[in-house]
């Protein structure tokens, strides 16, 4: 990585936008200007500047979409007319900055802020429910297959993997909803008392980071456990599939996020199709190679 570029792992929810804004202000004062807003934010080296940041929920953004609609462009234009400059967005969270002390904050109605957080949080969780439901259905399918095959170890491992993954995802969604509800309740209490909404702070970001790290570690451990069982209990073709799958997943995991961030266009669709076809071809080629190697290896050992 160039010394003029810096990355920061910064998972955040919609109730932590204040804390995220303050973080970007600190970075700007240190000489790092936000360039890309994502779970891993990217900064560019610049002169240290005293800037104000507002990370807000765009009322017209579609949950889970990286495209900026015409209405969202209007929203950006209005904010820019008021002295703010748009940097980037992650889903519905849009990041702006200004060097003007007099520019009004982008959101000045606390009740609307609470409503926006509730609405965006609900949309996000609805999106997250679909892969969860698919996982659950898959687990059920494996359960029925298990009953048929009566204790096939590989099926047990796969079933256990899917069940645990579903439970972890569900816990994540419920924990997210709990944090958001707690923030909304505190915010509404403050509004009722005529006080400003208490701003989220570093401790909220730290808690979110801990949860994210826990989730990632659980996913890695779970996947490694599944791979280990498949390797131990599988035969040459299954092991070859496993190696091919892991080696195919690596370039896909590296390329997919960059592709997902592109604007919706014919070019993006073409690249996505190319990536899928490329991954399939790579998987088949690697499967053929490792299948032959492992088969030959087994014969030698036999």
């Amino acid at each position: 990585m160039s010394k003029d570029i810096k990355k920061e792992f910064l998972p955040f929810g919609f109730s932590e936008l204040d804390a995220v804004s303050r973080r970007f202000e600190e970075r700007a004062a240190e000489g790092w200007m936000l360039k890309t807003l994502d779970t891993t934010c990217i900064y560019e080296r610049t002169l240290p500047r005293a800037l104000r940041f507002n990370v807000v929920l765009c009322p017209t953004a579609e949950a889970g979409s990286n495209d900026i609609s015409e209405k969202s462009h209007e929203f950006i234009r209005l904010c820019e007319d008021a002295g703010w400059r748009f940097v980037d967005h992650r889903g519905a969270a849009y990041a702006f900055f200004t060097d003007s002390e007099s520019a009004p904050d982008i959101e000045t109605d606390d009740l609307e802020r609470v409503n926006a957080v509730r609405k965006a949080g609900k949309q996000n969780r609805t999106l997250m429910t679909l892969p969860l439901a698919l996982n659950g259905l898959n687990a059920l399918t494996q359960l029925f297959a298990l009953i048929d095959t009566r204790g096939d170890v590989l099926r047990i491992a796969l079933f256990a993997f899917l069940v645990i993954a579903t439970i972890i995802s569900l816990i994540g969604i419920l924990a997210d909803r709990k944090r958001e509800n707690e923030w909304c309740e505190r915010a509404l209490e403050s509004i009722g008392a005529g006080e400003p909404i208490p701003a989220s702070g570093e401790e909220d970001l730290a808690a979110r980071r801990r949860i994210a790290v826990l989730g990632i570690c659980s996913a890695i451990l779970l996947t490694l456990a599944l791979i280990a069982v498949i390797w131990i209990k599988g035969d040459a073709p299954i092991r070859a599939s496993l190696i091919a799958a892991v080696l195919t997943a690596i370039p896909v995991a590296l390329l997919a996020p960059g592709l997902a961030r592109k604007k919706r266009s014919k070019g993006k669709t073409a690249l996505t199709v190319l990536l899928i076809i490329g991954a399939l071809i790579l998987f088949v080629v690697l499967f053929a190679i490792f299948g032959s190697v492992l088969h030959a290896f087994e014969e030698i050992l036999a």
Binding site: P59, L78, P104, D105, T108, E112
Partner: peptide
Amino acid sequence: LRIGPGTLYTMLA
């Protein structure tokens, strides 16, 4: 009274 552009946008809609 200072109205932010984001608040105004939602209000106008």
